[in-house]
Design a protein around this nucleic acid. Structure first.
Lengths: 381, 381
DNA sequence: CTTTGAAGG
DNA sequence: CCTTTAAAG
């Protein structure tokens, strides 16, 4: 069953129009069926020039919402391979979270958290657009823990996920949140990586990947074009234990930088997601002992610096240059989260010329369900 | 923590002596340290002629019980391999069963079950020896479900397990049940197959395998020699989906038959365990639809027939020739157990000349925790 | 420590 | 459907 969304907004913002269709893509953007609406309409020709898009596929799938607003998706019977029964497409998850055996906290106390914000731009303009980003570390596990209840409370206009770890054909029905246009970008490899973007307003265009044949197999990037900016949702490759994939990661950094540069000449860019690097010593609890570990090597940190030098701002650090102990990731082991032994790996990085539009940027460290917490950006656009 | 055992015996039987040591073997029998006692003493020379025993191994391990009878075993720190933390040897299991998400029943209502028996031999002699056998489908999972509480209630003199799926070094402390001599036979492949034998009375000898180099890598057989008989605990190879391992299985049948023959010339044999075959149509719910499935092929059934023709008795069927609907295995899927759509795959097969010693043979179909249920043999010896 | 999928049942 | 492991984080 789809979630019912209890809107609860503090400041004024532009009206959101519900008419909706959904896009699910495994490393590719599928045809749209629904009609777009409102001011941010996009022409057919615009949408069809999907440069980065790669059409791979099997198991394609789409879902249109019903008139009463309840998400309903096709329920094809899974084909049998031998005796092994395959899960049907997007059935509700049958299992609930095994709260019993968990050693780490999984439940958020949403009732006691405050998601409101009266933040304004430097010029005093109130926020009217909210973007959230979350490395969910497996959307199916998150759903079992009721982690997507976050959306009921945060109610962002745009929601970006990383590490969904779910092929399109295995998406549970609970992932089809009502009221958003939904875009899925899965890795070729089942259960690995994967990103998703939910948007109340239909983007002018949505593309997948950063134009690198190899890297784009891993479902790491979704770009949504809006009237005033590009939003790029990324899950940057982890450099791995023993830094085995550091070379791949550094190459990715270069390709991403080039990719953003091309967008930035057209419109301001908002890059969000898990950048898999703590930029400076202030961005993690144990800088001294982690210089040889993935996420805090010299090379990764320099990559972040080089990116910013292209003309981007780390919005959180821009607003809170001296704030310590504010992280977005805590290892599952060692009771790290309870001790706030963490890393700031998730960012909203935006074009310098857009920084005047920023109202606030917060790390939702009290929201559980993953080893990362969500982050939220408040903008006036 | 080790289990405390609440003895509750209905009929008289010979006294059991507690002094205890333990043997844990990965495909091999380790040196004993404890002193054997009582009438069934075994000479050093006898014990050292372990013909079938194969000394492979790594990760050897032993445990001696403390004076107050509480099982205590060495707690070597797991060595680290890279960043990956290995579990320490035989620590108590930290996680409890995820009762939440289970679709199948896992808890036995021991309080309402009757494990007593007034059964007698044909000649009217009361039982004085009880042997239980259970394919536990993963001893660690069973323990999380408190499945070994079965022992507190059944309180057998000998307990045979199949599919322990646990290398010796990963055995949880809860597996070290007090009051038994314990023998473990694990497969070379971690988490696969594996058998165990617990005995209140120390066997005259214990050997592993059936004398086949290949087959004996899989930890499928433990033979315990007693004064009056041999007890052979087996986990017969499954023929697999699509019968891919049927040839291996048929070879196994031959080797086992030859192995038993050699024992049988010395003493009567009791073969117990998961024979992975439903012998006749009466032994499964759906004989018609399963003739091409592992466990009910012509070849497997004939293998069972050929074994019995060597001079053995299927004790359950001998006692209850027409009893229908009495099974020892139900597939986890399709709610099979609740519907009693099952198979009789677990047996006590014994030498014809020993059948006069049988008092009863029962399938404990109300004991949960595995896809098999325990079976229990009552004997007068 | 946790999430995936795979093999095996 | 369930239990194991391996790979990845």
């Amino acid at each position: 069953m789809s979630q019912r969304r209890g809107a609860k907004r503090a400041a004024a913002k532009k009206t959101i129009v519900p008419p909706v269709e959904e896009e699910i893509a495994t490393n590719s953007l599928e045809e749209e069926t629904g009609t777009s609406s409102e001011e941010e309409r996009i022409t057919k020709s615009q949408r069809n020039s999907k440069k980065q898009q790669k059409l791979v596929e099997e198991g394609e799938q789409r879902s249109d919402e019903t008139e009463d607003g309840d998400a309903k998706i096709e329920n094809k019977k899974g084909k049998r391979t031998g005796n092994r029964q395959q899960k049907s497409n997007s059935e509700p998850l049958k299992k609930v979270a095994k709260t019993d055996g968990k050693l780490n906290k999984t439940d958020s106390d949403f009732g006691s958290l405050d998601f409101t914000s009266k933040s304004k731009t430097k010029d005093g303009k109130p926020w009217n657009l909210k973007i959230s980003s979350w490395n969910v570390s497996g959307i199916r596990a998150l759903i079992k823990k009721n982690g997507l209840d976050f959306l009921k409370h945060e109610d962002p206009d745009v929601f970006c996920m990383q590490e969904t770890k779910c092929s399109t054909k295995n998406l549970p029905a609970e992932a089809i949140i009502d009221g958003y246009h939904k875009y899925w970008c899965a890795a070729e490899k089942d259960g690995y990586s994967g990103t998703s973007l939910f948007s109340k307003v239909k983007p002018l265009s949505v593309t997948y990947g950063i134009g690198d044949k190899e890297q784009d197999k891993e479902g790491r990037t979704i770009t949504a074009e809006y009237d005033k900016f590009y939003l790029v949702n990324v899950y940057v490759p982890n450099s791995g234990r023993g830094l085995v994939t550091l070379p791949k990661r550094l190459k990715w950094n270069q390709v991403l930088k080039d990719y953003l540069k091309k967008l930035d000449v057209k419109k301001p860019v908002i890059l969000c997601g898990d950048l898999n690097v703590a930029h400076n010593e202030i961005d993690l609890t144990n800088p001294k002992t982690n210089t040889k570990n993935a996420g805090f090597t010299k090379e990764e940190r320099e990559g972040m610096t080089e990116l910013l030098e292209e003309g981007y701002i780390d919005s959180f650090r821009h607003l809170y240059p001296d704030k310590t102990g504010s992280y977005t990731f805590w290892a599952y082991f060692g009771n790290a989260r309870a001790k706030n032994v963490g890393w700031r790996l998730d960012y909203f990085v935006l074009s310098e010329r857009f920084v005047g539009n920023v109202c606030d940027c917060v790390n939702r460290s009290d929201v559980y369900g993953s080893d990362h917490c969500p982050i939220t950006l408040f903008l006036n656009v």
